[in-house]
């Protein structure tokens, strides 16, 4: 736990890693919301915001998917705004950003041992991109026309929790690796 706290402190105290995490969180959230259908085309060039259904904020429409409360129109884009979907997307993006920034940090530090920092954390963000989608199938599957929606639908309830767990594990592995590096460096210095 201390190792993870140290890594987080390092990530949040440096402007470069902080910027990397913020940019990744935003980019991933936009991608997630686009692939889950919350952000889509259909805008008519206007800028418009209408919030009409706050009372539906906590209504579920699928595993870890919640009802939109309003519509944001921005140029050609329409965002059916679900605050909880957005929070989930930003949370995943932040964890992905933490993994990427942590990896960058560890690659920049002078290596005390030949073993490289674990780099698989970023892949953990992929399953969640298949979680959302059309009424009955992930949008990627619809667009690609793959007859695998039946199998994915069985996994659907687990995809987002799985992504969260895998991203957290990625961060923990990075933190442990950094701690081992610190110990190696201290041992070498004596």
């Amino acid at each position: 736990m201390t190792a993870l706290a140290r890594l987080l402190a390092a990530l949040f105290s440096r402007p470069a890693t902080l910027a990397m995490m913020a940019a990744t969180a935003l980019g991933y959230a936009l991608l997630f919301l686009w692939l889950s259908g919350d952000i889509a085309g259909g805008g008519r060039g206007d800028v418009r915001l209408s919030i009409t259904a706050w009372h539906r904020m906590f209504e579920s429409r699928g595993p870890l998917r919640f009802e939109p409360v309003g519509l944001v129109e921005l140029g050609p884009w329409v965002w059916t705004l679900s605050p909880l979907d957005t929070l989930i997307a930003l949370g995943l993006g932040l964890l992905l950003g933490g993994n990427l920034a942590g990896l960058w940090l560890s690659r920049r530090a002078p290596a005390a041992c030949p073993r490289r920092a674990p780099a698989s954390g970023g892949l953990a963000a992929l399953p969640a991109l298949l979680a959302g989608g059309a009424c009955c199938a992930p949008l990627l599957v619809v667009w690609l026309g793959l007859p695998i929606a039946g199998g994915l639908a069985v996994l659907a309830p687990w995809l987002i929790p799985l992504a969260y767990l895998a991203l957290l594990l990625g961060l923990v592995r990075l933190a442990v690796w950094r701690e081992q590096q610190r110990h190696q460096a201290r041992g070498g210095g004596r």
Partner: peptide
């Protein structure tokens, strides 16, 4: 609230 201009 749905995006009725678009069919997923």
């Amino acid at each position: 609230v749905r995006n009725y201009r678009r069919d997923p």
